[in-house]
Amino acid sequence: MSFLDDFLVRAALAGLGVALAAAPLGCFVVWRRMAYFGDATAHASILGVALALALDLPVFGGVLLVALLMAVTVSAVTGRGYGMDTMLGVMAHSALAFGLVAVSFVPGVRIDLMAYLFGDILAVSKYDLMVIWGGSAMVLGLLWWRWNALLTATLNPDLAYAAGIDPRREQLVLTLALALVVAVAIKVVGVLLIAAMLIIPAATARPFASTPERMTLAAGAVGGVSALGGLQISFSADLPTGPAIVCLAAVLFVLSNLGKALIGR
């Protein structure tokens, strides 16, 4: 009927949708040194998968809820006797473990856990596609709307206060965007590789960027190329798709840094 009937087209659109939302958010994750935060939120979301399956709710909703809870809790608890990394380690891995245990209780269904850990981009449905592009559009809209405030708060909290911006609010915006990206990316690259889609394109773009905006655009391009190229490679060489996408991004990262080392200095 339509071009969306082709599973490869759906996969390509899904990968592109995730890459385009993950890249600008990933820049903030890199600038604010939140890499582990993103990783932890993603790991915890497997608990959301388990809960959603057990209660017969949409997986997207379950993941979004748990990712949000996780992110907000970590933000709130940090600084009360434990470092951020310790709190993240405790919460991320216990949520992952509880999630894996909870999945085993889901009666009657043998769910393909691998599909959630590593993604299953070739099984993306039209409904999934709608969720992915809806979520990505919300993330991009959120970042677009708060862009200058987010950048100012990232530079320095007091600078933000003096300009009438509340850095805690901006932190919350990022947390929300992170939960959304995790929820939409789970189908595409899976829980274990979401952080890679956030960080690697941003890190790849860094050596050649002179302003935050250029870095964001370049990260989006790197993410898009990785998603489409990875899909292509995985299809022609029969490789797992999520990992292939991340591998391609990693290769681009190495090339970018090699290129910079050869050209610059």
Binding site: W31, L155, A202, A203, R206, R214
Partner: peptide, 9 residues
């Protein structure tokens, strides 16, 4: 003001 080296500005 510490500007993180990963933030081009």
């Amino acid at each position: 003001l510490h500007i993180d080296p990963t933030l081009p500005m």
